[in-house]
Each structure stands twice: as structure tokens, then as C-alpha cells.
Design a protein around this nucleic acid. Structure first.
Length: 481
RNA sequence: CGGGGCGUAGCGCAGUCCGGUUAGCGCGCGUCGUUCGGGACGACGAGGUCGGAGGUUCAAAUCCUCUCGCCCCGACCA
């Protein structure tokens, strides 16, 4: 690790982002352009994301399965919009075992086609529905411009795929899952999100509705942090997924798909990080508490390490993820900086003075310097106090991010106002009844897109900021990753 | 794919314009000693086909040609 080598967040956000990833050892570049190695510390964050999402999926009745990486090319061609949306970024396998393949295989960019091919074999009766399946997998999309965690040629995600008897059930499922994502993002990630529906232009290739949660990064750009699609009967018709209803009539199923990826790690970095590095929400932090011992001589070292061991035991028994940094080759000050860079939410300092009084010093990562320190916490009460502090940090990170976001969302009544807000980096919210072409024009001229029509809408209606016509809903415009 | 930048030790870089002993510096790494309440210090040490291939030259990290790759900014996208 280089010394104070991190680019300040305010001067160069993109440079800072890459520095955090490197210095906190979250990821490294792979040998192939656009690929990324997720290092153990970064992967541990992903594992906590997985654990928390998976629990929610199971609680809502879903089960996990696994489908093949290779998909016959013809499968993708079955749904017209789907292939149009994905063909520019497909990776194809044309040779296998030294022989030219009769039909190229697609390395899955998403699994609707292969999963629905299987669904068609599995679904026969209304009694087989709903079918609620999730898979944890890697997918490949040959993107032009890549960025660690946010956009790489290969990424990890989960993709839920469901089949239902009615439109209403599918719609309810799509909405339920975007709310599951919201609950996870805000509750565990401390990432405040705006949930809503995508415009027609931004709707997933092959879906009839796409729901999204949009988060504001530290540079005020938007990040689509998770999506849920109502696929209607598009794939059901393309793959002939039909069931016999209770009146003995054949019906096509109604479907959803929904996904959240390792991109969310990028969101955590960009929402919470500061000039000292990463700041992890306690509920997703691989290490929630680090203990840093302080000593001057051998006698002190022995005494301090005994107390360190005791505190570590108390915290571990309380179910807190704790690590003691007992390395002799680094000074306490070095360790403070190291673990701050890694984003560990709470630090316990234990030195000779603490041993004598049988207390410890607590420092919270979200409040820098001395202001974040509390001294004189009794050893025997440390677990309870740390648990409270972790909860406080979790809340504080969320509130901070929400205040930042809300301060940068502005209501606009005209295109000029929208332009000003977007140029200043903020999000613009305004009544919208424009056409696809109006939306494209805004994108070309301002580089901002409609992030969503939020579920949370104001009362009544208003004049469209672009056309002046009566608009039924407000849209949020922002530059996005 | 367009514009820009860069490939020299594990990492970050200097040296390249203007060719010249043995290719340097900082960090990191190893050993030993002193240190340790906000990124300690000393001594010694290990580590390089200068991205690759041709060419020019008495002599190439440096000049020429070709090539490969990466990063950043755009268009496209989770």
C-alpha cells in the first residue's frame, strides 16, 4: 500500500473510486480488457450481499437452481426485442473441442431464454404455478467501456425468474421484488433509493414494464442498483410456456425476471466512501469491528493482548464480526489508517491505560478523528455498546446519504431549468408527458436520461416540462453510470 | 469504434526530446536492532530479458517501423 496515495474524492471522483478499489484490496484488473478479479475482501462484501438477499428471496417463497452458461444462439433470436437489445454485446463460442460448432453458443448475457425453455417443459397445469426460481450466476456482456464493479465484461449477479397464471400475479411479483431490493438496499446497504418505473426507452429488452431502484452516488450521478421486470407473455409465447387452467383451457403464463449484481459493491463505495477510503455499512461489512492493541514493551504487550483476547471473545460471542490486528510490524497509527481505508465501521483501541482501568476506546468510522472516539467503555459491557454503535453507524450512513441525495434533487418546470440542474450535477424532477423523441433529445443534449417515474408521486397533475401538455406523472432525470 | 494518455522491480514513477560506463528513486518485501495512544527509524539485503518483434548504429529504455495491451474521456449498457 502506498502512503496517502489516494486521490481526494472531491477533486477527481473517478480517480478516487479506482484508488479505493485498489487500496482497500477490493478488486484488481484481469489480464483480459474489461475483466476484473474480485479479491477476498471485495468478495466478502459480495457474500454478505448474497446472504441478505438470499434470505429475503427464500422468505418470499423462491428457491435456488442453476442453469447452463451456454445457450444456443437460436434461443436468443426467439424473442425479437430481446435479441435486438442484446446482440451487440454477446460473446459467442464458435469452436468447441477443436471443431467448428454447427450452431454458435452464446455465453449467457442473462438467462431468460434458457430458463424459459426449461419452464416450457416443467409447466403443464395451473397447479404448477407460480414457479418461483432464482439463480446465482455469472453473466457476460461485451461492453465497450468498462469500470470495476460498475460495468465489466463478466459480472456476478442473481437473476430471479418466475411464471404465473395471471397478469395481476406477475405484476404483483415484479413489484414485490423491487420492494425486496429496496428493503435490502436501504436496510442493509444503507443506500437510499428511489423506486419507480422505467420509461419505454429504458425498459428491458423483451419486458412490458421495468421497475428500478436508482441511487445517487457521491458525484451525484445516478446508478441503477437493481431492476425487476414484468415480462408479460412475451417469452411465454416465444418459448411456448402454456398451462391448462381450471377450465381445461390452454393459457400462456405471465412472467417476471429481476436482478441485482456485483455493481451494488460499486454503489456502496460511491455512496458511502470518503477521502480516507471506504466506509462500509455494518450489516454488510466483512469485519465489523477491528481491535488495535497498543503497547510499548514486552510486559505491556502481554497485558494488552490478554485484554484484547477477552474483548475479542466477548464480541465474537455476541455474534459480531471482529478481528484483532496484533501485527507487530505496524504501529497503531498505521493500523488506524489501514482499517479506515478498508471501511471497518468500528475500531476498538486497547492500550496499557485501558488495561489498567479495564476499559476500551471506541472509534466510529463515519465520524472522522477524535470526534468519533469514546473513551472509558468498560470491558464487560463492550459487546452491548458495540452493538448499539454498529446500529448507530448503520443509521448515520443511511441518513447522511439520504440528506445528500435530497439536497440534490430539484423540481423543475421547464427544459431550461432541467438543463441547469443537470449541468450542476443534480437530479431534476418534473412533470412529464413527452414522447420518446423528446426523451432522446434530452439525452443527446444534456446526457441525462429518465431514471424512472417514481412510485411516490405528487397529488394530481401538472404541465409537462417539455411540451406543456397535462402530465399525469413526474419523472426524474439524471446522468447515470 | 472516435479522442487523449501510458507500458521501465510487486506498486507508483524518473530517465526517452538531445543514443554513450554497471538502468535509478520512493513505497513495499526479507534479516537484525531500537520503536509503538493517528501512517516510526537505522543498518544490511533480495528483486529488472526497460510490453513484444523487426530495423538504424561502434553503441538503443532512448531513434525508426510494425505489433500487443492497459487506463481515462465519449457513443452503447446492470
Amino acid at each position: 500500500m502506498s502512503e496517502q496515495a489516494m486521490t481526494p474524492r472531491s477533486t477527481d471522483f473517478s480517480g478516487w473510486y479506482q484508488d479505493v478499489i485498489r487500496e482497500a484490496e477490493l478488486a484488481d484488473y484481469g489480464p483480459v480488457r474489461g475483466t476484473m478479479v474480485i479479491r477476498p475482501y471485495g468478495y466478502a462484501i459480495w457474500e454478505h450481499i448474497q446472504r441478505n438477499l438470499d434470505r429475503r428471496f427464500k422468505e418470499t417463497g423462491h428457491v435456488n437452481a442453476y442453469f447452463p452458461l451456454f445457450i444456443p444462439y437460436s434461443f436468443l433470436q426467439k424473442e425479437k426485442e430481446h435479441i435486438e437489445g442484446f446482440s451487440p454485446e454477446l460473446a459467442l463460442v464458435t469452436v468447441g473441442g477443436g471443431k467448428e460448432l454447427e450452431e454458435p453458443l452464446v455465453v449467457r448475457p442473462t438467462s431468460e431464454t434458457i430458463i424459459n425453455y426449461m419452464f416450457a417443459r416443467w409447466v403443464k397445469s395451473y397447479r404448477d404455478l407460480p414457479l418461483l426460481i432464482n439463480q446465482w450466476a455469472n453473466v457476460v456482456r461485451w461492453e465497450m467501456r468498462t469500470r470495476p464493479f460498475l460495468r465489466t465484461l463478466e459480472f456476478l449477479w442473481q437473476e430471479g425468474h418466475t411464471a404465473h397464471a395471471t397478469y395481476e400475479e406477475a405484476e404483483a411479483e415484479a413489484r414485490r421484488m423491487i420492494e425486496v431490493y429496496r428493503d435490502f438496499a436501504e436496510g442493509d446497504g444503507a443506500v437510499p433509493v428511489i423506486v419507480g418505473r422505467k420509461s419505454r426507452l429504458e425498459t428491458f429488452a423483451g419486458a412490458i414494464h421495468t421497475y428500478t431502484m436508482e441511487a445517487m452516488m457521491g458525484d451525484k450521478r445516478a446508478l441503477q442498483a437493481g431492476t425487476s421486470h414484468n415480462l408479460g407473455q412475451n417469452f411465454a409465447k416465444a418459448f411456448d410456456i402454456r398451462y391448462l387452467d381450471e377450465h381445461n383451457e390452454l393459457q400462456h403464463v405471465w412472467q417476471t425476471s429481476w436482478g441485482l449484481s456485483t455493481r451494488f459493491v460499486g454503489a456502496i463505495i460511491m455512496v458511502h466512501g470518503d477521502d480516507h477510503g471506504l466506509r462500509l455499512p455494518p450489516r454488510l461489512a466483512p469485519v465489523q469491528v477491528v481491535i488495535v492493541p497498543i503497547w510499548r514493551n514486552e510486559a505491556q504487550r502481554t497485558a494488552v493482548l490478554a485484554t484484547v483476547g477477552r474483548v475479542q471473545q466477548l464480541l465474537a460471542e455476541a455474534g459480531i464480526r471482529v478481528e484483532a490486528d496484533v501485527r507487530a510490524q505496524h504501529t497503531p497509527g498505521w493500523k488506524f489508517n489501514y482499517w479506515e481505508l478498508k471501511g471497518v465501521p468500528v475500531r476498538v483501541e486497547i492500550g496499557p491505560r485501558d488495561v489498567e482501568s479495564q476499559t476500551v476506546v471506541l472509534a466510529r468510522r463515519d465520524v472522522p478523528g477524535k470526534a468519533g472516539k469514546t473513551t472509558g467503555i468498560p470491558v464487560e459491557g463492550v459487546a452491548e455498546r458495540v452493538r448499539e454503535l454498529l446500529a448507530e453507524v448503520q443509521t448515520a450512513l443511511f441518513e447522511q446519504a439520504r440528506a445528500f441525495r435530497d439536497a440534490h434533487i430539484h423540481d423543475v418546470r421547464s427544459y431550461d431549468e432541467l438543463r441547469d440542474v443537470v449541468a450542476a450535477g443534480g437530479w431534476a424532477r418534473g412533470w412529464w408527458a413527452g414522447s420518446d423523441d423528446d426523451e432522446r433529445r434530452i439525452k443527446e443534449e444534456t446526457r441525462a436520461t429518465i431514471r424512472c417515474f417514481p412510485f411516490d408521486q405528487p397529488e394530481g397533475d401538472g404541465p409537462c416540462l417539455m411540451t406543456g401538455q397535462r402530465a399525469q406523472q413526474v419523472a426524474i432525470f439524471a446522468k447515470a453510470y
